[in-house]
Amino acid sequence: MSKRAVPEINASSMADISFLLLIFFLVTTSMAVNKGLTRKLPPPIPKDQPVPEQVDVNKRNVFVVLINSQNQLMVQGKQMDIKELRTKTKEFIKNEFNDVNLPVLTQVTIKSIGTVNVTKDHVISLQNDRGTDYQAYLEVQNELVAAYNELRDELAKEKFGTYFNNLEEESQNAIQKVYPQKISEAEPKNYGGVK
């Protein structure tokens, strides 16, 4: 019997089929990655306990940032533009020259960094009005986090010669100890205006 050749399968429609699938996935895909400013909320206060007044925090250790309903910023009692906030925050956290108006410096010895002066008890208190825009609020949060990130990067550059994010976990922890992130999103209050 003569050998019968198997007819070749026509593959030209393959491209069409895969095009169709490709277009389907192109349409349904959403490349948006989940990004955001991560924060940690304080644990709830038990209901029967009265709201604690801020007593134990020394006044010079607190950096008060207020945003009103017109999205204006007041920092340490003075009106401020958002562009200055980052530098001011950095000054506050670092207290390079041991200013009496800036937070108390404590000497701390940290493995792999050595002995440094740290404003360990500083608190940034962020307070907002109920009428503040979310965008404005987030911008302020962003500036505060940026201040910390810049300080951490500076220290990482100085001590380890690279950016904070490229460091091993151990060194990252050490740097975090020097610049602990302390942003307190205050208990909600009503500023000006009766509810």
Binding site: N34, K35, G36, L37, T38, R39, K40, L41, P42, P43, P44, N128, D129, R130, G131, T132, D133, Y134, Q135, Y137, L138, Q141, N142, E185, P188
Partner: peptide, 26 residues
């Protein structure tokens, strides 16, 4: 453009639910 009032309420609720890790999507 959301007002912070509603966000603050959500935050309080999350604290009550002990969901303390949050992320403001941006």
């Amino acid at each position: 453009e959301t007002k912070m009032g509603i966000i603050t309420d959500i935050k309080q609720e999350l604290r009550d639910a002990y969901a303390l890790k949050i992320s403001y999507a941006a």
